[in-house]
Design a protein around this nucleic acid. Sequence first.
DNA 1: TTCGTGATAGAG
DNA 2: TCTATCACGAAG
Length: 207
Amino acid sequence: MTVRSRIIRGAFFRRDPIRCARELVGTELIWGKCIGKIVETEAYLAENDEACHTFSRPTARAFVERNKAGAAYIYFSYGAHWMLNVLVKGIANGFVLVRAAQPLRGIALMKKRRGLDDERRLCSGPGKLTEAFDITDRNHEMNLCVDPRHCFAYAVEEDVDVVADERIGITRSAHHPWRFTIRGSKFVSVPVRSLTRPAIDRNSSPR
DNA sequence: TTCGTGATAGAG
DNA sequence: TCTATCACGAAG
């Protein structure tokens, strides 16, 4: 089976962001010589989601209008890190943030770019991942569903145990369980907080 | 736990 | 022009 036949096409991203985020976990991110298995994503909704850039950034709303599903939305965060998102336009619009990956190929190159040897820490966060893969704003608005060298691809193994958990690193609309990880993966950014979330649990949580 | 870093947006 | 904010990461 060739790489091309496994490419995830635009139809995948013409659904809703939550489902896309969940199903992108376990797929492969192919970027030049580097390949990683995606172990962590988050969904952001263009509507009614205060954590999404579209909520407060006119440029993000314009991006959604201007681009097709599967376009890369890449921005610079905290003066240091690039974030890789994929545009979803379908039943609902939004983004999938690619947060962590398990290095599969091009590992020596990733180590060099990151200045690290520990494979677990090469792509264990959205900023680390883009550094390891050399993803920057020059890839902004790139269509990630056509070029087999810059795309997502279905993995050969299909059985993936995905855990839903609350998104992290945000202050607004943080309660939605729209973070998705591979259960038990050692390559995620931050360990999942709870495998089973109580429906209402205000007393056991400090702060 | 703290802090650097720079883009963005909105207020004045 | 100024300020607040931020989907982070590394050092301590």
